[in-house]
Design a protein around this nucleic acid. Sequence first.
DNA 1: TTGAAAACTGGCCGAGCGGTCAGGAACTAT
DNA 2: ATAGTTCCTGACCGCTCGGCCAGTTTTCAA
Lengths: 184, 184
Amino acid sequence: MATNTPVRERTRREILQQAMALFQEKGYNATSLQDIATAAGCSKATVLYHFSDKTGVLVAVLEPSHTALSKLVAEASALPAAEAQELAIGRFVELAVEFRGLISVLQDLFGSLGEMPEFSELVAEGLRLTGLLAGGTGNQLELDIAKFAINGLLGECRHPGERTDAELHELCDTALRRLLRPPA
Amino acid sequence: MATNTPVRERTRREILQQAMALFQEKGYNATSLQDIATAAGCSKATVLYHFSDKTGVLVAVLEPSHTALSKLVAEASALPAAEAQELAIGRFVELAVEFRGLISVLQDLFGSLGEMPEFSELVAEGLRLTGLLAGGTGNQLELDIAKFAINGLLGECRHPGERTDAELHELCDTALRRLLRPPA
DNA sequence: TTGAAAACTGGCCGAGCGGTCAGGAACTAT
DNA sequence: ATAGTTCCTGACCGCTCGGCCAGTTTTCAA
């Protein structure tokens, strides 16, 4: 009990870290379990000893960002529409910057996410965020614009090294406000 | 010479048509040569008789939209910046609507497009479009906003059946104008 | 009618994938 | 030292993929 990192956790963490890097770099589908194992310095079988299957690795990689999104949606949902929109824009941009690398992973999965039951909650939360960003109006055009905004933001968070966090933050903030809060 | 559709062209067309539909439906990577062959009512070997390899099918499927984009970029490039931007916005939206299905194919490939030499020209043309949409200013933020706009538009063109062409057109037009021509 | 050219195909290949399993290695409490 | 538990692995399985090739069928001009 000298080290508080039992062997189990140490390996798990290493696998997750390398998997995250690879998913960002090459996408989820293009990354094989063998790739992850090699990068983590263990065997493919070890990866599957720590995680149920390949999807299990993805779930674990996405978990921190998922809970952060849940928290944001929960907080904003408790507010009146206008304030909820303001909070959603600001916090969503922060989230996007914080997890900028992971976002390209989501992008890679947009086609198949719907068919993975493990992520139905994540998808639902994304939809709720759309509603909040649209300002609570039922207006279909504004809802679609909000989706448009999310797509733009997701796409723009790729290419990790090219922009500082501050630059990315400014870009996303400007774009979201132009789209979602157009001057009357 | 009675029919002006020699056997060769007839089969080629059928393959391309079915390949396009499948690429739109399931994405390029998730579509196998066997899928295409079955849908086209021929054998996998026949597909490879008409096209050099799987990438060759993709190139052919993308060709009409590619030339349309080239034409747009060429025309706009000949104009002064402000008019070029206006033309680029309008024509690009039309293009996106016309080829709305194909766009999800591009989306599916964004990660790997850069590494396929067959598409370097397409990528370069996309970059030039970005510059035109940004209004010709060297301003980095506006350039990034233009990229943001393209990403948003690409993402929004998925899910073919959900919107009419007119609705999609209005959505893209509104979004692009909010992003790229913000009131001073 | 015929024979060469074009169009097409079944069968095969090597590679890579996600996933399983029996058993070896390392750690730990006694 | 020893026995039990946890951690790890090489070998293997079934499957699908893109691509190739020898050979058959179809087309079409002479």
